[in-house]
């Protein structure tokens, strides 16, 4: 190991990380600004957070978003895990190529296309737009992310363990539940969290597929943003960032803990 971490490398990493974080830090700091004019500093204050407590529409949107994220991430985790198992376990079955294409395409597909096409489907089958349609749309998008995350774990999985269990007379379903599932559980959890945050984050697909009573948080924030910069938006965004940061950091500590424990076993 003779890696050289030269000053050039240090500077490019430092600049890159700074570029990623400075705007977010500025946004967070301004959310505590007492002044009504966002950019003029008027001292520290929590007044914009207090204002959020009065903003019923924003709160309803937040509840909608959380419910949609929870239900679509749960469905997508089940379907995505099955898709990952299909890709790694079934070998070359007929219809694999279109399946692979359908799993990978939504990852890069521009959201306007996915959103428009799903909306046209819902209209064609006469499904009322609202909570259900947004959940279906989000599930479709995020199940692919779950599949990719779980698949990368399954590829490195030692199948001898499963074979040993089956040789000892363990039925396939039981083998899956007691050998395979615990091993890929961290990847499934990571996939779920990623799916959850992607659903929480989505504006474009939700805008196409939503209906009355199912306004999500990003739709609400976006319509406020179009009216200009407002300190309350900074406050909402800060809460959003704090929640996501806590979840991601907790998740990464948990997975590292689990991996260390497995390594010592």
């Amino acid at each position: 190991m003779r890696r050289r971490f030269s000053p050039f490398n240090l500077v490019s990493v430092a600049l890159g990380i700074a570029f990623l974080y400075v705007p977010i830090v500025i946004l967070v700091i301004y959310s505590f600004n007492d002044s009504r004019l966002v950019t003029i500093w008027g001292g520290w204050s929590l007044r914009w957070y207090a204002a959020l407590l009065e903003d019923v529409a924003m709160q309803e949107a937040a509840v909608n978003s959380l419910l949609i994220a929870l239900s679509s991430a749960t469905t997508a985790t089940v379907l995505g895990t099955l898709a990952a198992l299909t890709l790694t376990r079934l070998g070359r079955f007929r219809g694999r190529t279109p399946f692979v294409a359908m799993v990978y395409a939504p990852l890069v597909m521009p959201e306007v296309i996915t959103g428009l096409s799903l909306l046209l489907l819902f209209v064609a089958v006469n499904l009322d737009r609202g909570f259900l349609t947004v959940t279906i749309a989000h599930t479709t998008l995020i199940l692919c992310f779950v599949a990719v995350v779980v698949q990368s774990r399954l590829v490195g999985f030692d199948r001898a363990l499963e074979e040993a269990a089956m040789d000892l007379g363990c039925p396939p379903l039981r083998t899956f539940l007691s050998v395979t599932l615990p091993t890929i559980a961290p990847a499934i959890a990571a996939g779920f969290l990623l799916a959850f945050s992607l659903s929480l984050d989505d504006l474009v697909i939700a805008s196409f597929t939503t209906g009355p009573g199912a306004t999500t948080l990003p739709i609400r924030i976006y319509s406020e943003m179009r009216l200009g910069v407002k300190p309350q938006i900074n406050a909402v965004c800060t809460i959003f960032i704090a929640v996501i940061a806590i979840v991601v950091i907790a998740a990464s500590i948990l997975t590292r803990h689990a991996e260390r424990r497995r390594a010592t076993e």
Partner: peptide, 21 residues
Amino acid sequence: VLVILPFWTSFLIRVYAWVNI
């Protein structure tokens, strides 16, 4: 983790951060 973290925070928020600036 530092590079992934902004990817998890909302796309919309990150764009809005630049409106501020």
